[in-house]
Design a protein around this nucleic acid. Structure first.
Lengths: 347, 347
DNA sequence: CATCGAGCCCAAAGCGCTTTGGCTTTGGCG
DNA sequence: CGCCAAAGCCAAAGCGCTTTGGGCTCGATG
């Protein structure tokens, strides 16, 4: 109605303006019951007419809560930042905005991670953190427990699963299922282009892969398996090597779309046709800039949106921080999406 | 030396422990000259022995500075998050860590951006912001000027360039240069697969492209030009259309590596060989997960690291906030990297 | 010898909010 | 009518830091 008047910088001014105490204003604005509905409305109206918003530092100091979630993003070996990161962030960020939290991101060399967590906690800059990319014997959960900083792991570590909160994809089942699919199509020699196997997700994928092979009475052949950075060039090189070997695979499982792209490149370069002469199947995180499955790149994939994983993590962590009842573990199932890159092996 | 003793929660305790006043402790820790070097050392030693770190909210409240930089990340039309984002963040984030700033990221629907800036400023949550993805008539610089919130634009708008701080790539010159290169190789019919041309960078690229053509007495043909989301599927579709047309191009310029990948896909599908029958050249932001130039994908590119752009923006903004002397504009030149996707047109 | 200016250090006043404890007023109830 | 609980409001005490405006000591200076 009324055009925004001058700005009001703080509670005191607003209180004086309305002839009320700061206490009352604060309570009205924060929804406490000790103030009449009448007064509350008057206060709220005045507040947004004069464009008043509580100073966040002051509020934090008084409450001891930062209303901020931390994400510590390690820069890996090759100075690389995980491309899955931005989509995860998009999912989590939407939840934060909606639930009134801020997102604090710290980019740090992998080696200095522990210090960063310590510092985030000591300075009280965050109420909790999301733990990315857990490795096999990850020291971070123990560290965070020791600090008493709430956290949710995106993925799982080897520690007792019931002892912390996590959101994960069922990587074991996903890769077992996809491998079974290839076996049913008749493939007997299947390659694996995996991520670094100190990462839990990669290890679980390999286990799923091997389990399916074992069921069929086969054993995995290390000479057509590789664990490396999940990007095009490494996958390209690996696939090329596999195809040049004495007994090349008729199918390959890739841990990411980027790997699959590299593998496809190698396959085509060998004048082989994906889906007919060599089958390719990969895990698809549904990165928003890579429409991998179905109509997009036409890849056959195991699909599970990393964005949803992000929002699940965010919601779980906030529930945890606010002391609400919450499901402590979420296991997401990947969906097998048929594309044009799989088929029976050539006879 | 000494094992970290119990934790000390605040200045007061530390002061009592050392028999000094809070004032002195604060000054010692913050490097003010009014305290003797002796005392300072004693204080510093005690502080880190007892694991003391000032509470950041309290410090912020007292100083009025947030020591935090905001990044507002819009989710675009198709619910997509810009894949360049994570590398930009990596560059900026490293600078923030080093200079003692926090990075606050807000993911928000494009339409609600203005409100987000207002709110970040009103709540005093940030000391400044980085403005991403400027469009042709971008309202944000005016908004931020009005709010009095310091900012640095990654890119430029149409507004008088001297009136704000920015870091940009010389997109005009880059695309003119690349186009000239193709012309020198003998190409006469060159396609353009660009980003949305309401984005300044895309518009400048088209202008550079057209300028080079004009110099050669040619005019751009709209039927082999497209402006769209810079991802594989759109580029694939466009290139396919171009190749199916009555007079297909012998070369194509792409605004991103992802577009180039789509274009290459279409070219190969047409049983044409990139570099021999159709030349491809693209802008390469050096995304860490896409090794596009040279030995990687072998693309001929105009290369300019977006990560460096990120660190330049961060440094410039912090200088601005802290009132230091600073260069207000940085224009980065892209480097032409020869790959295997360019060559003379087939005769 | 009195004075003065460094050199060090301190007490106390904010910063802007939340929250505790208490004070009126009102209305219902025995 | 007197009492009491509930409703509605307030003053003031933090939260943990920075910063202002002294105060004291001591050696140098006129």
């Amino acid at each position: 109605m009324c055009i925004a008047g001058g700005f009001v910088a703080n509670l005191k001014e607003l209180a004086e303006m309305l002839g009320l105490s700061q206490t009352t204003i604060s309570r009205a604005l924060n929804g406490y019951p000790e103030v009449s509905e009448d007064t509350r409305q008057r206060v709220i109206a005045a507040a947004d007419q004069h464009n008043y918003r509580p100073n966040s530092s002051a509020r934090r100091l008084a409450t001891g809560k930062a209303r901020t979630i931390g994400h510590v993003v390690p820069i890996s070996h090759h100075d690389m930042i995980n491309p899955h990161f931005s989509d995860f962030i998009a999912g989590a960020g939407a939840v934060y905005s909606q639930r009134g939290y801020d997102m604090l991101i710290t980019v740090v060399e992998a080696a200095r991670q522990a210090d960063t967590y310590r510092s985030l906690h000591r300075d009280r800059r965050v109420d909790g953190v999301i733990l990315h990319g857990p490795v096999v014997n990850d020291p971070r959960p123990d560290l965070l427990d020791e600090l008493g900083l709430p956290y949710v792991v995106h993925g799982r570590t080897l520690r007792d699963e019931t002892s912390y909160h996590w959101v994960d994809v069922n990587n074991f089942r996903s890769f077992r299922r996809a491998t079974r699919h290839l076996l049913e199509l008749g493939h007997r020699r299947i390659a694996l282009i995996n991520g670094w196997e100190n990462m839990m997700f990669a290890r679980r994928r390999r286990e799923g892969f091997e389990a399916a092979l074992a069921e069929a009475g086969l054993t995995a052949d290390p000479s057509i398996m590789v664990a490396d950075e999940m990007i095009d060039p490494t996958a390209y090189a690996a696939m090329k090597r596999f195809l040049d070997s004495p007994s090349p695979p008729t199918a390959v499982m890739c841990s990411s779309v980027l790997s699959a792209l590299g593998a496809l490149r190698a396959i085509r370069e060998h004048r082989l046709e994906p889906g007919r002469e060599v089958s390719v199947i990969c895990h698809d995180d549904r990165l928003s800039f890579l429409d991998a499955s179905g109509d997009g790149l036409g890849l056959t994939t195991m699909r599970s949106g990393i964005r949803e994983a992000g929002s699940h993590c965010a919601n779980m962590l906030i529930d945890l921080i606010e002391g609400r009842q919450t499901v402590p573990h979420i296991l997401l199932e990947a969906e097998l999406v048929a594309g044009r890159t799989t088929g029976p092996p050539p006879s």
